[in-house]
Write a protein that binds this DNA or RNA. Sequence first.
DNA 1: CTACCGATATTCT
DNA 2: GAATATCGGTAGA
Length: 202
Amino acid sequence: MPGWPESLTGPVLEVAPRLLGAVLRHETADGAVAVRLTEVEAYDGPGDPGSHAYKGMTPRNEVMFGPPGRLYVYFTYGMHFCCNIVVGDEGSASAVLLRAGEVVEGLDVARARRPGVTDRDLARGPARLCRTLAIERASNGADLTRPPLTVTPPEQPLSPYVTGPRVGLRLAAERPWRFWLPDEPTVSPYRPAAPLRNRARK
DNA sequence: CTACCGATATTCT
DNA sequence: GAATATCGGTAGA
């Protein structure tokens, strides 16, 4: 993907922390909104039991197997979109889930999209981040090197950062592949994987 | 703040 | 049929 930064290409465990502090910007008809990333998670290709790529390519995850610098958007729990940045070389299917951020541009537009939501919560969580940026199915596979969706890395890598377990997985949840910036109020609250629900019939 | 629970598309068994 | 990279509402401490 010409124009995609070298610093954001390579092994996902190296690239993921470099995305902290990066700005993801989306231009739409109702205005542009940009978010500074404060929390991300690494998904390391077909060898990672927690990754959507674990069981090989499907219609949903095929963008993960493509070149770096594209956006992988998926629909989950029947109602939410979440997005990842593909960072591995073509075929490696590794990507970084964007879990949370802080709105740094278009705050009025963002508020209008999320009535009743506090500023802190606008992008505090992967599905909230997508809603606030108006990212949905149409953005799947988007080239992140040109509008309407762009990523700008920080001028220099932010440190220190913190690592910990990934959120919401049962498989390989213990791997400390979540990265976030300390003392950021927008980092999402930790929620363990949903317990197996006792859904007797109804 | 924590705990529970419902909504419900896509994938996998 | 059942799980899932989640969220928002409600109830309670």
